[in-house]
Each structure stands twice: as C-alpha cells, then as structure tokens.
Design a protein around this nucleic acid. Structure first.
Length: 242
DNA sequence: AAATCGGTCAACCGCGACTTT
DNA sequence: GAAAGTCGCGGTTGACCGATT
C-alpha cells in the first residue's frame, strides 16, 4: 500500500492516492509556506506532487497545519463535542471551530467511534426498558389479582412531589441509574451528559457547573456558542509559519 | 503461532457553494 | 449571466493494529 516515493515519481502523470510519505509532507509544507494555503491544484503542480489539489488541502488541513493537537481528547473537549453535537447536529466543521487545534475529521471520527456505541446502547436500553415495563406490568397484574387495586401510572410514574412524569416510555423518562449496558466509565460519562442534555433541565447545567468546578478549567455558556461568535479563527496567526 | 475480529483514523468521494474569468 | 475552477463539508472506505480465540 505504501509506495516508495521514487516509484511514485516514475508513475507518469497518474495521481497518487493513499498514505502520504514524509517526502511529500515536507514538500507540501515548504510550498504552502512559500505560496500560501490556496489554489491547491496549482500548488500541487508547482510543488511537483503527484497529488490532487484536494488531497493536498486535506493533508494540510488535517495533519500538517501548525497548532494542531494530536492525541486523546480532554474531558473538556469531549464534553464540548457532546454539547455542540446536541445543539448543531453533524456540523463538524462548525464544531471544530470551537475546539482549537482539532479538525472536523478528527471530531467526526471521535464521534463515530465513541458515541455511536452510545446511541446503540441507548437503543438497547430502550429495549431493556420495555422489557422492564412488561415485567413490571406482569408482576403488577399478579399483585392486582390479590389487591384488585391496580393503577400503573400512580405506581410508577409519579415523582416524590406527586407530579406525573413523561409517560411515553421514551428515554426521556428513563432513569439512568437503571442502565446496565454501559461498557465503561468513559461511555457512562458520555451517556450521562447526553441524558442530561436530553432532559434539558437545570440539573444538567448544575452538573456541568460542578464538573467545571471540579476540573477548574471548563465553563460552558450557551451564549458563547451562538452563530457568528467564533472564539477561534483559522485564518489569523495560524497561517504564520514563523 | 496463526487466524479472526473489532476499533481507530487517515484519506477518498461526491456534491453543493462560492469565486473567478 | 454563464461556465469553469476552486473550496469546504459530511459520509464512507480501507489499512493498520491490538485483542481475542
């Protein structure tokens, strides 16, 4: 799969695909410094790279660009991604602008690998919840046969203040403590965040605040994430190579 | 030790939006 | 205003690697 550079250079005008070689990276980096990060098709030709402009741009944006972070996501970053994905959906480039040094591709991959599992677990959780209701129903009916006093809603769907909760069987009303499918503390933390966000209540905000206080470094303010108030701009000092 | 499986992530693809000619 | 060129985005693919059987 990995071609030798010399071989690649002998392949005529055919555009190369696949993994970038160190020589190609160096060549691209020096020509971007020289010509700037635009007109990628022209840059690729001038640089003598057997790559499409698109490929060059992608390599630069996702890997070679200065100030990029490479490594695991911090708790703050994870939290922020979850928050913003909830808010904006799969707008990865938009989300990436809130995470200095992270690329849309990186965030997208992170979401798919770590949080798709969460979604699946959530679905299974719903299934489990239905089973639980069915089991509860069955047991309750057995009790009813004795007591003749069955009222499902009153038994299971009132909180301590006597207010009736959401009763549609969705995960909105499902107590997280009953989830037994979490495969790791990491995933359970994400699950907690997602569930709290879905509840959309002050508890979630309080929890976030507590988490922030505990780490002492993160504070989520929804107003900061309104359209058009980027806190990080690609186009400024990032492009300064010196 | 070898085969298989599953997770991760770099890179590609297609398409729409934007810019230039 | 139209055509061509370029850019940016989101979805998808496939190679790689460690864990498991």
């Amino acid at each position: 799969m990995v071609y030798r550079f010399q071989e690649a250079m002998q392949q005529g005008e055919h555009l190369r695909k696949g993994t970038w070689l160190q020589e190609e990276d160096e060549q691209l980096t020096s020509f971007v410094a020289l010509l700037g990060g635009r007109r990628w098709d022209s840059l690729a030709k001038v640089a003598g790279l057997r790559r499409s402009g698109k490929s060059c741009r992608l390599r630069w944006m996702n890997y070679l660009r200065p100030n990029l972070k490479h490594g695991p996501f911090s708790d703050e970053e994870e939290h922020l991604i979850v928050q913003l994905q909830q808010q904006w959906g799969n707008k990865w480039s938009k989300i990436a602008r809130r995470l200095p040094g992270r690329t849309d591709n990186e965030i997208k991959n992170y979401w798919r690998t770590h949080l798709r599992k969460t979604a699946q677990a959530q679905q299974e959780g719903e299934y489990k919840y239905e089973l639980k209701i069915a089991t509860h129903d069955f047991n309750q009916k057995s009790i009813d046969m004795v007591s003749k006093n069955y009222n499902y809603e009153n038994v299971c769907c009132q909180d301590s203040e006597g207010e009736t909760n959401d009763n549609d069987g969705s995960m909105n009303s499902f107590p997280l403590s009953d989830w037994e499918l979490r495969s790791s503390p990491y995933e359970s933390r994400i699950l907690d965040w997602v569930a709290e966000l879905q509840n959309g209540n002050g508890i979630a905000e309080k929890k976030v605040e507590q988490d922030c206080n505990s780490t002492g470094s993160f504070n989520y303010n929804p107003q900061e994430f309104e359209e058009g108030c980027d806190t990080w701009d690609y186009s400024g000092s990032l492009w300064d190579m010196n």
